[in-house]
């Protein structure tokens, strides 16, 4: 039995670029989840643009030493990481807008204007009762 559930698909941008959208959820640990977007270069290499992680693990930025202890965080590819030869997505920022995979997916879809990632039935209307 695998330890996580995974889902991956390709998405094509309006400009014709290919992107990989992926979603992962650990079966045993609710807070161990991830969803992200990567650009697929013409030679097949995948370059992560952003990854939305759960709070299962700590994270430390190389650039500024900022640590996230059991906090959701978003990895972002930075020019500095590329210039210094680090893992491109080493830099992360604190994520306070989500606490679970479903919420992270909504934010990923919103941030990168990905249509079809979240079924419309999940997009409940806001109510002010």
């Amino acid at each position: 039995m695998p330890s996580h559930i995974e889902w991956t698909c390709e998405a094509i941008s309006i400009d014709g670029d290919t992107f990989i959208i992926y979603i992962r959820q650990n079966i045993s640990l609710d807070d161990d989840f991830s969803c992200g977007i990567a650009w697929k270069s013409p030679d097949g290499e995948q370059i992560t643009i952003a990854r939305y992680n759960g709070s299962s693990h700590d994270h430390t930025n190389k650039s500024d030493g900022v640590e996230f202890i059991q906090q959701c965080h978003i990895h972002q590819t930075t020019v500095e990481a590329a210039q210094k030869g680090w893992s491109l997505e080493n830099h992360a920022i604190l994520a306070e807008a989500y606490t679970c995979l479903d919420e992270a997916k909504l934010i990923l879809a919103d941030d990168y204007v990905i249509s079809g990632l979240v079924p419309k039935v999940n997009q409940l209307p806001l109510s002010w009762n």
């Binding site: 695998p2 330890s3 996580h4 992962r24 161990d32 991830s34 995948q46």
Partner: peptide, 12 residues
């Protein structure tokens, strides 16, 4: 590791 490492590896 509760399967975290393979999940991390699966991103790439």
């Amino acid at each position: 590791d509760f399967g975290h490492t393979l999940m991390h590896l699966s991103y790439s």
